[in-house]
Amino acid sequence: HNLTITQGKLFFHYNPKLCLSEIHKMEEVSGTKGRQERNDIALKTNGDQASCENELLKFSYIRTSFDKILLRWEPYWPPDFRDLLGFMLFYKEAPYQNVTEFDGQDACGSNSWTVVDIDPPLRSNDPKSQNHPGWLMRGLKPWTQYAIFVKTLVTFSDERRTYGAKSDIIYVQTDATNPSVPLDPISVSNSSSQIILKWKPPSDPNGNITHYLVFWERQAEDSELFELDYCLKGLKLPSRTWSPPFESEDSQKHNQSEYEDSAGECCSCPKTDSQILKELEESSFRKTFEDYLHNVVFVPRKTSSGTGAEDPRPSRKRRSLGDVGNVTVAVPTVAAFPNTSSTSVPTSPEEHRPFEKVVNKESLVISGLRHFTGYRIELQACNQDTPEERCSVAAYVSARTMPEAKADDIVGPVTHEIFENNVVHLMWQEPKEPNGLIVLYEVSYRRYGDEELHLCVSRKHFALERGCRLRGLSPGNYSVRIRATSLAGNGSWTEPTYFYVTDYLDVPSNIA
């Protein structure tokens, strides 16, 4: 807008934040220059609390790290170098490059900038070799853009010569660093050979998330399962459950009422301010606690030095998902009996873990797994792929695949051998790939016309006998059925096997 004052003059007093240069501009645009008398524009009460600059400061050096910015700028000295009290560095987070010096300023003089007072450097006698002032900004957020400017702080001049310097606002972004852990990993099994893994992005990506790394490792069953005799009275049979499938998407929606109208769909109840505040506090606490764990609990591995020492970490090797089922080394339970199943799973520490690289999504279907087997899954978020990966501390989750139908069934015939004193040795093959492992066998036998009897055969007993022995049988026709019990439950009964026990007292003698 054009402003013209045809008559009258300007009068400025007691404006401590208004620089004289701005008042002189007002004289020019209003056409009143030359009308004012000496005392109409006070030299001592206008701009006496402001830094009124008329020179431009330029930054000469900028260096960044993930949490620091090192700045240096060209030296500046007023005509009387004693008038320079120091520099004021202003900075704040700036997602967009549209910041002005006066953003967030209120009537009390406060604003949204963080201000650092910096002492002037030592003055050199040689004007050509003056030290460049600077400042190291610490405690910054990774991968965050900051708006920065600097200006001088000078003393009051009796001659009211307006001098000083100020830089333009520059924008500097800190470097990326390792992201925080992925949030809320959930693993479920939808079949006997697959596990579905879902997660949420890290709360602090500290860069642009480029991919996720998912490692999985087959877990050995508890050692007590191999040692305890679950045929003993009072000892509860062990059981394991597989990871249940995901709930429906509708039930997972946030901010939804727990109660549904019987007449149909209901609208979600909005969260109160107290609920939102509580969630923010919980989120802040979780982030602080995660940072504490990362800094205190997890110790970084030592990389190899120039002395030739090897990095103890196993090298990563990509495998196809079809090879995942046989990740671990199978060892027989008892070496003397080769027909026992290889369900003991000690994992070799030198073995390469299978892994998958996930790009542009937060889910993965891990296939080719062994049925009813526990897996430990390790999830890392990465925001750099080359020249070397920059990934987060791992988040861990466990899951067990679903049982395989008929995996616990005894394959092959049940054979028998009759000894003296009416002892019958029953023999059968253990299931080759049971659900988890076989903890015991149930032997059901009966003599024709009598009630059915049951015998429990422990895992250890089966390994020693290759089956079991029935003792003290009365003469007669017998039928026997056997079924295995694994961590997933009972298998199917075998087809009945028949044998006849004679009275050993009636056996004919070869003595003449």
Rank of each mutant, 00 (worst) to 15 (best):
residue 388 E to Q: 13
residue 347 T to K: 13
residue 215 F to L: 09
residue 370 R to K: 12
residue 470 L to E: 00
residue 496 P to Y: 13
residue 417 E to F: 13
residue 320 S to V: 11
residue 315 S to R: 11
residue 315 S to D: 09
residue 500 Y to F: 03
residue 346 P to T: 14
residue 494 T to E: 01
residue 478 Y to H: 07
residue 496 P to M: 02
residue 240 R to P: 08
residue 298 F to E: 08
residue 500 Y to M: 05
residue 263 A to T: 11
residue 500 Y to L: 10
residue 300 P to K: 05
residue 311 D to F: 09
residue 480 V to I: 15
residue 503 D to H: 02
residue 259 Y to K: 09
residue 276 I to Q: 15
residue 224 E to L: 09
residue 451 E to S: 15
residue 402 M to K: 12
residue 227 E to A: 06
residue 274 S to F: 02
residue 242 W to A: 04
residue 225 L to Y: 08
residue 468 C to T: 02
residue 331 V to F: 13
residue 286 R to N: 03
residue 327 V to W: 02
residue 207 G to L: 01
residue 339 N to R: 12
residue 509 S to A: 06
residue 209 I to C: 03
residue 212 Y to F: 14
residue 339 N to F: 02
residue 329 V to K: 03
residue 225 L to C: 04
residue 252 Q to M: 08
residue 295 N to G: 04
residue 510 N to Q: 05
residue 441 Y to V: 02
residue 296 V to W: 15
residue 363 S to R: 09
residue 352 H to Y: 05
residue 420 E to D: 10
residue 208 N to T: 05
residue 227 E to P: 10
residue 347 T to L: 14
residue 208 N to G: 14
residue 493 W to R: 03
residue 477 N to A: 10
residue 416 H to Q: 11
residue 241 T to D: 05
residue 292 Y to N: 07
residue 466 R to C: 13
residue 439 V to C: 03
residue 270 P to T: 13
residue 465 E to Q: 13
residue 345 V to P: 11
residue 420 E to R: 04
residue 212 Y to L: 02
residue 307 T to N: 12
residue 400 R to N: 08
residue 434 P to E: 03
residue 371 H to W: 08
residue 460 K to H: 08
residue 355 F to T: 11
residue 268 S to G: 01
residue 224 E to T: 07
residue 380 Q to P: 00
residue 248 S to T: 13
residue 379 L to G: 00
residue 320 S to Q: 13
residue 239 S to R: 09
residue 326 N to W: 05
residue 297 V to N: 09
residue 291 D to E: 15
residue 486 S to C: 01
residue 250 D to V: 05
residue 246 F to C: 07
residue 315 S to T: 12
residue 248 S to L: 03
residue 252 Q to C: 10
residue 257 S to L: 12
residue 442 E to V: 15
residue 443 V to S: 00
residue 492 S to R: 08
residue 240 R to G: 08
residue 233 K to R: 12
residue 315 S to F: 13
residue 340 T to C: 09
residue 223 S to D: 14
residue 308 G to T: 12
residue 488 A to V: 09
residue 229 D to P: 14
residue 327 V to C: 15
residue 462 F to P: 02
residue 478 Y to E: 00
residue 432 K to H: 11
residue 294 H to G: 15
residue 216 W to T: 13
residue 211 H to W: 12
residue 422 N to Q: 05
residue 480 V to W: 06
residue 481 R to E: 14
residue 206 N to P: 03
residue 282 E to T: 09
residue 315 S to E: 10
residue 396 Y to C: 11
residue 254 H to T: 12
residue 482 I to K: 01
residue 377 I to A: 14
residue 502 T to S: 13
residue 487 L to I: 13
residue 208 N to K: 15
residue 477 N to H: 11
residue 458 S to A: 10
residue 269 C to L: 10
residue 235 L to A: 11
residue 234 G to C: 11
residue 243 S to V: 09
residue 483 R to T: 01
residue 494 T to G: 01
residue 218 R to Q: 09
residue 493 W to P: 01
residue 426 L to D: 01
residue 266 C to Q: 14
residue 360 N to D: 03
residue 461 H to N: 07
residue 367 S to G: 08
residue 456 C to K: 01
residue 361 K to W: 10
residue 384 Q to V: 15
residue 492 S to P: 05
residue 366 I to N: 00
residue 484 A to Q: 02
residue 240 R to M: 07
residue 395 A to K: 15
residue 327 V to R: 08
residue 237 L to Q: 03
residue 443 V to L: 10
residue 480 V to C: 11
residue 291 D to H: 13
residue 407 A to I: 04
residue 391 C to M: 14
residue 317 K to H: 13
residue 311 D to E: 15
residue 336 A to C: 14
residue 305 S to T: 15
residue 396 Y to G: 07
residue 494 T to L: 02
residue 423 V to T: 07
residue 236 K to D: 09
residue 442 E to C: 12
residue 283 S to N: 06
residue 418 I to S: 09
residue 470 L to K: 00
residue 234 G to H: 04
residue 370 R to V: 03
residue 304 S to P: 10
residue 223 S to E: 12
residue 345 V to H: 08
residue 347 T to P: 05
residue 341 S to K: 13
residue 498 Y to Q: 05
residue 476 G to T: 01
residue 436 G to V: 13
residue 216 W to F: 12
residue 232 L to W: 12
residue 395 A to H: 06
residue 275 Q to G: 08
residue 281 E to P: 03
residue 337 F to P: 11
residue 269 C to A: 06
residue 235 L to V: 10
residue 310 E to P: 05
residue 402 M to W: 10
residue 322 G to L: 11
residue 282 E to N: 02
residue 294 H to M: 15
residue 383 N to F: 03
residue 506 D to Q: 14
residue 239 S to T: 10
residue 256 Q to P: 06
residue 207 G to E: 02
residue 353 R to Q: 13
residue 432 K to D: 13
residue 314 P to K: 13
residue 300 P to Y: 06
residue 461 H to L: 12
residue 225 L to T: 13
residue 422 N to R: 12
residue 337 F to T: 10
residue 507 V to M: 14
residue 217 E to L: 07
residue 212 Y to P: 00
residue 215 F to N: 15
residue 418 I to G: 08
residue 480 V to F: 05
residue 494 T to I: 07
residue 456 C to P: 03
residue 252 Q to Y: 05
residue 332 P to G: 07
residue 321 L to N: 11
residue 376 R to I: 11
residue 213 L to V: 13
residue 344 S to W: 11
residue 246 F to W: 03
residue 267 C to W: 02
residue 297 V to L: 07
residue 418 I to A: 12
residue 229 D to S: 10
residue 262 S to E: 02
residue 467 G to L: 03
residue 364 L to M: 13
residue 260 E to W: 09
residue 389 E to F: 13
residue 260 E to P: 10
residue 349 P to L: 09
residue 436 G to D: 12
residue 345 V to T: 10
residue 238 P to E: 07
residue 243 S to W: 09
residue 246 F to V: 06
residue 440 L to V: 14
residue 389 E to M: 13
residue 280 L to I: 08
residue 430 E to M: 04
residue 321 L to A: 13
residue 329 V to Q: 03
residue 316 R to W: 12
residue 355 F to S: 09
residue 434 P to C: 03
residue 290 E to K: 12
residue 210 T to H: 11
residue 208 N to Y: 11
residue 347 T to C: 14
residue 375 Y to H: 13
residue 292 Y to R: 06
residue 249 E to T: 05
residue 223 S to P: 13
residue 249 E to R: 07
residue 317 K to Q: 11
residue 250 D to K: 08
residue 356 E to H: 11
residue 419 F to Y: 13
residue 262 S to T: 11
residue 385 D to C: 09
residue 289 F to D: 15
residue 293 L to F: 00
residue 340 T to R: 10
residue 307 T to V: 05
residue 251 S to W: 01
residue 284 S to K: 13
residue 371 H to A: 13
residue 421 N to M: 12
residue 398 S to A: 08
residue 226 F to W: 02
residue 492 S to I: 13
residue 406 K to G: 11
residue 368 G to P: 11
residue 365 V to Q: 13
residue 358 V to W: 15
residue 273 D to S: 06
residue 270 P to I: 07
residue 271 K to H: 13
residue 216 W to D: 01
residue 441 Y to R: 01
residue 267 C to S: 06
residue 379 L to D: 01
residue 461 H to I: 11
residue 405 A to P: 02
residue 297 V to I: 09
residue 276 I to H: 08
residue 423 V to Y: 14
residue 272 T to L: 08
residue 361 K to D: 06
residue 435 N to L: 00
